[in-house]
Design a protein around this nucleic acid. Structure first.
Lengths: 204, 204
DNA sequence: GCAAAAATCGACGCCGTGTAGAATTGGAGG
DNA sequence: CCTCCAATTCTACACGGCGTCGATTTTTGC
């Protein structure tokens, strides 16, 4: 494209900075795993990415912004995947499939998801991101419940309210158990699935 | 020994320091409510308690220790109360009573409990405290499930595993909703109660 | 009333954050 | 090849919070 006008901004095409930016986020994820949010210092991230603190502040305004970007990157993958996923129409299968996907999700992104949950309170930006993600799940759960015969609505015994509670149950259960072994995660998943089934009125 | 610096050791009855210590914890709770853990500085707590930072460090070794003490104080009240509470023997009533007590609990101590949950990861001491508290609840829930006919055991569809998931559901639901209104808290409680009932096989 | 212990203070050093401005690189155009 | 502008990087600095130390004042026990 000879007549290509970049006009402005780094978004032209793969500047050096884009690579660095990714390197920073990757390093951040690694350090997050190794020593946790509090202990991780901006200097550590910079060093890990092969630059100095000063250079890092060219890309991100603060430590929080770095982590927010990391969470955003991860969460967008989730949204992407959930948009693609087809909805099975038989409730029992839908529930089983959903729990299987959830296990994969936490196996792959457990660390970042835990961090997102931890920082939801202190970093409003991350809280917003995570809320939107949770709402996706709640809506999906509610849809399954309704298809299984639970009355729609937000009253305590209706689909929306129950979906919200079930979502928190799953989130918290996986949050805890994903810090342990994968076997436990599978077990916990089965338990959640069972409660979800029973709540949908699908008792054996 | 001039170099002797006890961070926290007194055991004769009601020294002046005991009053101060309580004042510090009370101030800490107030500040926690007004501006949250991160924003709250050791200087703020000291000032609120009418002393200087230096003096505060005579009572507590760090900001974390202060909050840990606050959580410990609150949590001990919970243990006290749960020990006193009689166990109703009819499952339906037991569940209703438990949820009623949970609502009271979160209305009264919601702030500190939320803080405890938030800091469970970063402050091991607090995590330990909160885990022990959660175990109390899990055991209680499991007992009710078993009395309602759910098979005892830790396999996915047995009482212990289900109790754990239900506990996390309740914790997380109340955690979120206790930051909002009391009406919502009542609603959420009903939802949790319903799911608990259904999980116990007590449908309608 | 008088030592010893308890409690308080003010100042210091450390570390991490975020900012400013100077210095370097890299690629498009003459 | 040289130049210029923007992108990128660095070094140095100021700020603020944390935890420590030694000195000082207040209580407490006898």
């Amino acid at each position: 494209m000879p007549g290509y006008h970049p006009a402005r901004s780094r978004r032209a095409a793969e500047r050096k900075g884009d690579v660095r930016e990714r390197a920073i986020l990757d390093t951040c994820a690694a350090l997050l795993a190794r020593m946790g949010y509090e202990a991780m210092t901006v200097g550590d991230i910079a060093q890990g990415a092969g630059i100095t603190r000063g250079a890092l502040y060219f890309y991100f305004g603060s430590k929080q912004e770095v982590v927010t970007a990391l969470v955003a990157r991860t969460v967008e993958q989730l949204w992407e995947r959930s948009r693609v996923t087809a909805q099975a129409d038989e409730p029992r299968q839908a529930i089983a499939a959903a729990m299987r996907r959830t296990v994969d999700l936490w196996n792959e992104h457990g660390l970042v998801m835990r961090t997102a949950i931890d920082l939801s309170l202190t970093v409003p930006e991350i809280g917003e991101l995570w809320n939107r993600t949770a709402d996706l799940f709640i809506t999906a759960i509610a849809a399954v419940l309704e298809r299984a015969g639970v009355q729609a609505g937000t009253e305590p015994e209706q689909a929306s309210a129950m979906a919200r509670a079930l979502c928190w149950m799953i989130e918290r259960t996986f949050y805890h158990v994903s810090q342990e072994s994968r076997e436990n995660l599978q077990q916990a998943s089965s338990t959640c699935e069972h409660i979800w089934l029973v709540s949908a009125g699908l008792t054996v």
